[in-house]
Structures are given as structure tokens and as C-alpha cells.
Design a protein around this nucleic acid. Structure first.
Lengths: 157, 157
DNA sequence: GTTATTGCAAAGGCTTTGCACACTT
DNA sequence: AAGTGTGCAAAGCCTTTGCAATAAC
């Protein structure tokens, strides 16, 4: 879906990223590289299963267990976020661009991205008043989107 | 654990509440009443399993499936909220007091309650800028609590 | 008497885990 | 060579579902 390098299927990652991963003392395997690339190329939310499907053509043997293990590892390394959008599976997302969050419409299941800046005041309030350091990279806000509010009828959910 | 009525084990609910439930055209069973009472008495987050355990002495036959079904029904009736606090099971909470939300420490798993007012500005922003109507009754904010930040050492999670 | 609700048991979906083999370092 | 990571398969957990019997209306 986005192979700019016909001759090389596994080099979308920067040297810096590869180094960062290796730096943790862990090993760089084709599976891990491919999973991270896929997540990066996906450009948004992906479930473990979607990653599996996406990766299958290139590495059919790649096991689901490996995907989960790799995802945890990438999350620990700070390269990937994990969010529960309330649809059964967790969704993973490559990190590394502008931080942003998600508005999830519980009626149509659409996902809107919002800027991190909107949460800044809240972040400060929580820190000031409760001493709590919020990790909003983890966050999803549920509700109803404009379209569904306007066509306020059908209860799909 | 909180039986003020030695002669009657099933009457902590107000007439208004009972009426509200019946009003939906559904039936009032001892199971449902007990589950709602338990949730109310719990005064906070409870998982389906905790409810099950709590209810067992009074109604040992009460099945887990019934609990889940009842919980969904109560949620639909607006009496109970459902939140995913990221610990595997959903948590349910009796609604009916001041709306509030939860800060969840990912290190020590402590849960702090915060006032709804803190989210008001955000709610408005989302409505104004995105036309999104947020349902914050559903919300949990992850991060690290004051205590864990201060004793910044141990990586428990 | 009707019809919703329960209990039981089984299935379901997602994720994790144990183990031997393979591969990275 | 040493030790982490992989694949496979199985288990795990939480939750949902089908069905006949039961209880509420």
C-alpha cells in the first residue's frame, strides 16, 4: 500500500529509531522492524489483528503472539501508544508526530483527532490541584459527533 | 456489611428508583434489586466479579450472566456508569450523586476522584470546535499520582 | 396467562504464557 | 557461544449468547 522502495522491503525506519531500539539492549529482528514499519505506515490506529493482516503478505509466518509481545515492547520503548477505544481490541499507534487525541463517536464509531493543546489546561489543573501527572497519550474521549447529533435519530449503538 | 434493616434485606432503594426501573416496562426481580443495592452500597467502582462476591451471601445462586445483563440494563437506564480503568475488567458505579471522574495511577493503581467541573472547559471546547458532545461519565484519566511521582523510583507496572 | 428474566453451560473474542527451536548479538 | 526472540499451541480472562425453566406482570 505504500512501498516506495521496490528493492528493499524493510527500511522505512530511521537509523535513530533502530538505534533507540537496540539501545535498550534488545534485539532487532525482522518481525519487530516490520511491525513498527507497519504501524508507522498505517498512520493511525491499528489493532493487533489489523497489523497481522497488513504484515501477512510480507511475512506470513509472523505469529499473533509475537505481535502482542512486540507491541508491548514498542510501547515500553515509547514508540507506540496503546488506547482502548471501547471496541473490544486495543488500538496501537505510532508515536512521533504531533501529540493528538481521539474523540470517539459512540453512535457511528467515527474517530476524530484533536489537538493536544486542548488538553493542556486540564493537564495543568490536574497537576496543580491533585499533583497528578496525566498521560494523555493514552486517551480517548467518548461521546457523539456532530453528524450524529444533527441526524439525532437512529440508535445504532 | 451494611444491613440496617435486620428484618428486610432488600429495601435500600427509594420508591422513586424502583418506579423508574419499572417505568421502562421491565420487571423488577430480587436479583436486579440486589445488584443495584450492592452497587449503591459499594459507593464506588465495582467489577462484575466484585459484585458477584458481594452478593453471594445473600443470593448464592445469582449467576454471572445475570449480573452482566443487569449491569447493562442499569447502565441503559442511566443508573450506573461503566468505565474502563485499564485493568482487564470494566468497572461499574452507581450514579446519582455529584458527577465525578477518575484519575488512575498506572503505577500504584490508586484511583482518585476529581470533580466534574474540571472537565467543563474541555467539554465546551469540544462542542464549540468540533461539534462533539462528550460523555464524560465514561471517563478515566491515566497517569501517575503525587505519591508515586515523589517516590519516583520503583517501576511496579 | 404472557412474556420477560433467570440459570446453566457453552462459546466467543482478545490476549497471554510455556516451551523448544532459531536467530541476533 | 550466550541468550533473547519466535512460532506453535494451549490456556486465560472477561463477557456474551442460546435455551428451557421460572418468575413477574
Amino acid at each position: 500500500m505504500s512501498a516506495n522502495h521496490p528493492t528493499d522491503t524493510t527500511t522505512t525506519l530511521s537509523q535513530a529509531e533502530l538505534a533507540a531500539l537496540r539501545a535498550r539492549g534488545h534485539r532487532l529482528t525482522p518481525q519487530r522492524i516490520l511491525i513498527l514499519e507497519t504501524l508507522k505506515a498505517g498512520g493511525g490506529h491499528m489493532t493487533a489483528d489489523q497489523i497481522h493482516a497488513q504484515v501477512a503478505p510480507r511475512l506470513p509466518a509472523l505469529n499473533a503472539a509475537t505481535i502482542y509481545r512486540t507491541l508491548q515492547w514498542l510501547n515500553g520503548a515509547g514508540l507506540v501508544s496503546v488506547t482502548d477505544v471501547g471496541e473490544g481490541s486495543l488500538v496501537y499507534e505510532y508515536f512521533g508526530h504531533t501529540p493528538h487525541h481521539h474523540l470517539i463517536c459512540q453512535r457511528c464509531h467515527r474517530v476524530l483527532e484533536i489537538d493536544h493543546a486542548l488538553l493542556t489546561p486540564l493537564t495543568h489543573d490536574l497537576a496543580d490541584r491533585y499533583g497528578f501527572s496525566a498521560r494523555f497519550d493514552h486517551m480517548a474521549i467518548f461521546g457523539e459527533c456532530r453528524e450524529c447529533r444533527q441526524s439525532n435519530g437512529g440508535e445504532e449503538a
